[in-house]
Design a binder for these strands. Structure first.
Length: 136
DNA sequence: ATTCTGACTTGCT
DNA sequence: AAGCAAGCCAGAA
């Protein structure tokens, strides 16, 4: 399984009305960084609930504000700011209320996340297994 | 090996 | 609250 698959699998678990920042996804996966997640989402996120993954500030991914907002309203995702104006004139500023909307995985969900993260490593062609020696 | 690029983050004005 | 500079991670050139 490659990084992109892991990201998509994880994103698919985020429930309605909840969100995760790019950095959160990377942390849960225990690998890569926010930029890797963003990159993966921009190229392969169309099949999963991509709007539930956004910047740490709560802003929707660049170029998708309009579409994301519509979905957030449908899902009753906690928002802050003036999205009414944004809808009407495109002028207002709004964001997701990260404090309230950030997903807090249940113990079960957390296990599933762990499973995804665990299936990540397997292909490291280089670096033959150093037996049981670790050289701390 | 080096440089560049990007749906990122944080800290400091 | 909004901009900006640096830091950060990996893949591609």
């Amino acid at each position: 399984m490659d990084y992109v698959e892991a990201v998509l699998d994880l994103v698919a678990l985020i429930p309605e009305g909840a969100v995760l920042a790019y950095g959160d996804v990377a942390d849960l996966l225990g690998s890569g960084g926010a930029r890797q997640v963003g990159s993966a989402m921009s190229r392969h996120g169309s099949a999963v609930p991509w709007w539930r993954v956004l910047k740490a500030s709560g802003e929707a991914p660049p170029g998708h504000g309009r579409e994301a907002l519509a979905l957030f309203l449908l899902e009753d995702t906690p928002l802050v700011g003036d999205y009414a104006d944004y809808l009407r004139t495109g002028e207002g500023r709004w964001r997701v209320d990260m404090t309230a909307a950030r997903w807090a995985p249940s113990a079960y969900e957390f296990d599933r996340i762990d499973a995804i993260a665990g299936g990540l490593d397997r292909s490291l062609p280089k670096l033959s297994a150093p037996d049981d020696e670790m050289t701390v």
